[in-house]
Amino acid sequence: MALLDIRNLTVAFQTGNGMFTAVDRVSVSLSEGEVVSIVGESGSGKSVAMLAMMGLLPWTARVTADRMEFDGKDLLAMGSGEKRRIIGREITMIFQEPMSSLNPCFTVGFQLTEALKTHLRMGRKERRERAVELLNQVGIPEPVKRLSVFPHQLSGGMSQRVMIAMAIACNPRLLIADEPTTALDVTIQAQILDLLLKLQQDNDMALVLITHDMGVVAETAKRVMVHYAGQQVEHQEIGGLFANPHHPYTAALLAALPERAASKKLPSIAGVVPGQFDRPTGCLFSPRCRFVTDLCRSSEPPPAPAELGSALCHYPLDDGVPLNHPDGKEAV
């Protein structure tokens, strides 16, 4: 049985100009101890999907799904009290901005032990010991001293380590890391990723890594989901994704990686992700796709078979060749 099973999750926001669909029929499933990555540009709804699952979206969000289960328990039907026993204990999350994600008014120790007190009802001494152990685990030197330190006295990397320590405090079964390295220096990024993967293996917890960095994906995940404009456009094993991307968007993303560039000029994807007001009919990627046809502009593509990465495309690519394409266009 899957640890996390989400089918057709849709998140819409009530805005001044009507509803805006930020996440459109996205499915995520994940088994115990698995590492999955969700990639996409800013605004592709990758964080919103996970925040919706955690119940952390503002009240203006409308969350619907055919199924949303964690360990066989229905997260949609659950009351908020019952959900809070899972959130923060079995499912935890770390965020993009470690510096602003810690409360400036409380010490590291206080924030670190809060979940232990709430979920595990640990005593004061026990909590303190566990906090020191956690700070050791995430590689913070002089852990005892750090307990009484305030967040503004920590660097970004240190703050993210504290966030990770907080997240693994109750030995969760699933950790969601929402762009955990985006706000950090490049040298620190690798350290934090290594730390996350080490903790994932040591504690045998499942990890969802949300990122826009293909390099991060390549180093960490076994399975990748590519999001575009709120939709999941492709879903593949990591090896297959890099060797044989099935959606033109994935192919274009990979082609834009500097290390893969064939010529001196780095290829880019023209245009931007559609927003609330310029949402195209048909395929959402059609205005930016180089294989676009009239069919793409008029009708929404059905998902391709699983062996083609469930690509949301009328002409899924195979080895760079769009299948059944009227022009018989070849990859460049």
């Binding site: 955690m54 119940g55 952390l56 809070r84 026993r85 899972i86 959130i87 923060g88 204990r89 935890t92 999350m93 965020f95 901005e97 602003s100 994600s101 810690l102 409360n103 400036p104 809060e114 979940a115 709430t118 979920h119 966030m163 907080m166």
Partner: peptide, 17 residues
């Protein structure tokens, strides 16, 4: 609207806390 409030909620703390 601050990030640390989201963190606090992500810990599963009660709305009152």
């Amino acid at each position: 609207g601050e990030d640390y409030i989201r963190t606090a909620r992500a810990k599963g703390l009660s709305p009152i806390r």
